[in-house]
Simulated assay, not measured.
Amino acid sequence: MTRPLPRSARRDAHDNRARILDAARAVFGEDGLGAPVREVARHAGVAPATLYRRFPTKRALIAEALTQQRRACHTAVRDALADPDPWHGFQSLIQRICELHAHSRDFADTVMTAFPEAADPTADRGGALPAVTELARRARASGRLRPDFVVDDLVLMLMAHQGVLGVPSAARPAASRRFAAYVIEAFRAPPGTGAPASLPPFPELRPSGSPGPS
């Protein structure tokens, strides 16, 4: 029969886990999901063996550490879809996504499913994708979103927004807001009856056999 851990040992284990998750968010937020686990352990002030006792794989660590990021993404999508003005909701989603990314490099990794099979952002993206698709449909129907917009254009947006993370951190929020404003104008349908300039075909961003943009 396994005896329960003493209260002090349980408290130490809980504290170690919290420090590891805080460190993972900080390290992944600054360096992205490619940062090594040993850097997370160093940042947390624990031995790598201690980290691996709590999280046997890097994927398990990512899945737990990015829970807050995934929730923030879902909240942004849900709030945008609830807006009675679909174009305003669409704009607010762009602004919020860029804001989240500007504060954390791993946000783009989460959205673009860098570790799909482990962190399981694929499932989150799958849950959010119908809502974003519906928001885009409503915004197109209002005549204010260009008709050739596809949801995967948001992935291209994040890939381009990655450059904003290279500016000094103090200037990053303002640079991100300016970038979002440019992107919104690019997605906006032209006024009157003018047709938007035609776009090149959407590039293949997924492995062969995966579903395409919708």
Rank of each mutant, 00 (worst) to 15 (best):
Thr75Tyr: 10
Arg10Glu: 15
Asn16Glu: 15
Gly143Val: 03
Pro130His: 12
His14Asp: 12
Ala41Pro: 02
Arg38Asp: 15
Asp85Gln: 04
Gly194Tyr: 02
Ser142Asn: 01
Gly192Asp: 06
Arg38Ala: 14
Pro147His: 05
Glu204Gly: 07
Arg38Ser: 15
Ser169Arg: 11
Arg7Asp: 11
Ser176Phe: 04
Tyr182Val: 10
Pro191Tyr: 09
Ile20Asn: 08
Leu205Ser: 03
Leu51Val: 11
Arg206Asn: 03
Pro173Ile: 14
Asp109Val: 07
Ile97His: 08
Phe187Gln: 00
Val27Glu: 04
Arg17Asn: 12
Asp120Trp: 07
Pro207Ser: 08
Ala65Asp: 06
Gly126Met: 09
Ala26Thr: 12
Val155His: 13
His101Leu: 02
Gln162His: 12
Thr75Leu: 13
Gly127Phe: 06
Ser169Gln: 03
Ala24Gln: 04
Ala128Lys: 09
Gly45Phe: 08
Glu99Arg: 13
Pro203Asp: 13
Ala197Ile: 05
Ala82Thr: 02
Ala24Phe: 08
Thr110Leu: 02
Arg38Asn: 15
Pro147Thr: 01
Ala9Trp: 01
Arg188Ser: 02
His88Ser: 06
Pro200Val: 11
Asp152Arg: 09
Arg125Lys: 12
Asn16Ser: 10
Leu205Asn: 04
Pro173Trp: 08
Leu81Cys: 03
Leu100Gly: 01
Asp109Arg: 05
Gln91Pro: 00
Gly32Asp: 13
Glu64Tyr: 05
Met157Cys: 09
Leu93Glu: 09
Ala189Thr: 01
Ala119Gly: 14
Arg53Val: 14
Arg140Asp: 00
Pro168Asp: 14
Ala131Ile: 05
Ser92Leu: 04
Gln69Cys: 03
Thr50Arg: 06
Arg140Ala: 00
Leu199Ser: 13
Gln162Asn: 06
Asp79Arg: 07
Val167Thr: 10
Asp153Gln: 03
Phe107Ala: 02
Ala160Thr: 01
Thr113Asn: 07
Phe202Ala: 03
Gly166Asp: 09
His103Gly: 12
Leu51Pro: 14
Arg42Glu: 15
Val132Leu: 13
Gly194Pro: 02
Ala171Met: 07
Ala118Ile: 09
Gly127Cys: 02
Phe90Glu: 02
Ala119Gln: 08
Ala141Val: 00
Phe107Asp: 01
Arg25Cys: 10
Cys73Lys: 01
Gln69Pro: 02
Ala13Asp: 09
Phe179Tyr: 14
Ala186Met: 13
Leu21Asn: 14
Arg172Tyr: 03
Cys98Gln: 04
Gly166Phe: 10
Tyr182Asn: 07
Ser92Tyr: 00
Ala181Lys: 06
Arg96Ser: 10
Val155Phe: 10
Ala128Val: 07
Met159Ile: 04
Asp83Gln: 08
Trp87Phe: 07
Pro190Cys: 09
Val150Pro: 00
Ser214Arg: 12
Val155Met: 06
Ala60Lys: 12
